[in-house]
Write a protein that binds this DNA or RNA. Structure first.
Lengths: 337, 337
DNA sequence: ATGAAAGCGCTAACAT
DNA sequence: ATGTTAGCGCTTTCAT
């Protein structure tokens, strides 16, 4: 009663060998009498047998588990809706195929001490990195040494063995937003970005740079701790104090854009009349803005699904079907710019 | 080169037995020469050895993994900031103790088909359930049969073996909010709740009911699909059409409250002048509201941490220290009510 | 101070 | 149609 049942428990009960039980558990009907099958099934039921993944894994050298490492300085590493949707897509797709998702949020620099890295627990690894590009690339290289397939979310492809890069086209999204405000006459633009870097942010900045430069417009970067509305507000105030009121403020994500709207309104400025505001991601709460935010929809959930699909396929076939998978973003025209 | 290194690989390299390597890996220095120790350490380094959890787990019958099952009808089961913060707290605390978190979002009714339930993969299980109380209790009972310790988040304690209930005091939070609006003269209150039930929602409703009844005020429940701002708006419009404009609207969470503010403003009503608005949870984006939302702070992250701590302690000691752990919530007085 | 060996729960090749 | 058996990588007891 108290001991966890094993194949032997079931076998004894059904009066068969453990091999037979194993076949029933794994649905291998080939040449087994209907009677035996049913007898075993009943025994499994009766003793409440659940196969041990450790046992199977040891034998098959598969763990049926994918690791997801999220490198983020904040303990609430799941706070961003982008991350959250990505993880949901990943997890759902893996679950549907019988794979588990082992989640680990890690402080920058501590990646090497994660159990996902130190121990052999997963069949494959997914990562969402933050920090400067140098650090991220160093992390990627050391993860690639681990000997299992790697999915790097939101990173641009670099030469790396057994690694697949899954990202959205952030630069194109930025270009679309930038062209829109340039067409509306913006010449002086603030872009409010998180202090801690991220590949996607770099792309968004690059997209804006490209369009604004061509149009002879200027881009000023305003870095802040984007986890606090107060910090965002303070940074914007400071930038305005230093450089005057811009024609448009771009938030590196929607949260920042919403905070920007508040700050501007607080100064008696009209949005979009005096200053245009743009966001990034288009998650539901962007609908809280009044008027609705002009932003770009991030297919975060799809990104997660794609990552899951690609890594499972890699596990089966032995190699990644593609080295890079890029999903387009779509402009969501609101009324703030 | 290609084969994953095992204890044997390292042992061969260092010219020792696998038992010795195992001791080094597990930091058991007792009576080992400094020279051997170092030699083994070097060999581990050189071959890039990482211990297999499957192997260890099979031997020790421990998996160093906790499962987290989130029952939610939406595929983006991580979308709610409450859930997200809870998972972050849980995950961080577990990681710090060397435990992994196996995450699984499950549709209501499908709990039994989760690999967390069907297979033996974890040392303990945590759940956050949704749906009607009957269903949730049935789920809890079947999970308790599984033979490993169970943490039920946000559920009120029921008699269940080897199960610990970890929740916040939602009813007290509701009472605090309700008393505030009653004191300000509210007599007709709408409470906008998600279609799909949740223990916490029941508590929040109960808290309001209690205070409003005593004050001779009325409470009308408005159910809606809270994952869509449009659906929330539509439900509120309908309620107003049917019952007139209330004195206060309570959102079962902040997202709903923010949507309510928009609807009311859209009808030319002043908040809080004509109608007071209250929320629940006080996650950062509540700061997007203007004026700031009156709400109640949910210690979701702490709930996760507490759950982790309790289940780890249970694993060590053999029994839960407590059957129920309740964390207080705090009123966040804003300017919307 | 170090090693030999048993066995954790399971799968699969091979026997019967 | 069903059973026997050899390991998968590891920990731990007992020898040496």
């Amino acid at each position: 009663m108290s001991e966890r049942p094993t194949l032997y428990t079931v076998a004894a009960r059904a009066g068969v060998s453990i091999a037979t039980v194993s076949k029933v558990v794994n649905g291998i009907r080939a040449g087994m009498s209907e009677a035996t099958w049913r007898r075993v099934e009943r025994a499994i039921e009766e003793v409440g047998y659940r196969p041990s993944r450790a046992g199977r894994g040891l034998r098959t050298l598969q763990r049926f588990t994918i690791g997801m490492a999220i490198v983020d300085p904040s303990p609430t590493f799941l706070a961003d809706p982008f991350t959250t949707n990505l993880v949901a897509g990943l997890s759902n797709h893996l679950s549907a195929r019988g794979f588990g998702l082992l989640l680990h949020g890690i402080a920058p620099g501590a990646l090497g001490s994660s159990f996902l890295v130190r121990e052999s627990v997963v069949d494959g690894l997914c990562v969402l990195l933050s920090g400067a590009q140098r650090t991220r690339h160093a992390d990627l290289r050391s993860l690639a040494e681990l000997g299992h397939p790697l999915i790097a979310f939101q990173e641009k492809a670099i030469a790396l063995k057994d690694c697949c890069f899954v990202r959205q086209d952030d630069k194109a999204g930025a270009v679309a937003l930038a062209e829109r405000i340039v067409a509306r006459g913006a010449r002086r633009v603030f872009m409010v970005i998180p202090e801690v870097g991220w590949a996607a942010i770099e792309e968004r900045v690059a997209g804006f740079r490209q369009v604004l430069r061509k149009a002879g417009a200027t881009l000023a970067l305003v870095a802040c701790d984007e986890t606090s509305t107060e910090a965002i507000a303070a940074a914007i105030e400071m930038a305005i104090a230093g450089k005057g009121v811009p024609d448009a403020v771009v938030g590196a994500n929607d949260q920042i854009a919403l905070a920007a709207i508040r700050v501007l309104r607080g100064r008696g400025l009209q949005v979009p009349g005096d200053v245009g505001v743009l966001g990034f991601n288009a998650f539901p709460f962007a609908g809280f803005a009044d008027p609705p935010l002009t932003t770009v929809r991030s297919p975060a959930y799809e990104l997660g699904e794609a990552g899951a699909e690609l890594i499972l396929e890699r596990l089966e076939s032995g190699r990644f079907r593609t080295r890079e998978h890029v999903i387009p973003v779509t402009l969501v025209p609101g009324a703030t710019a």
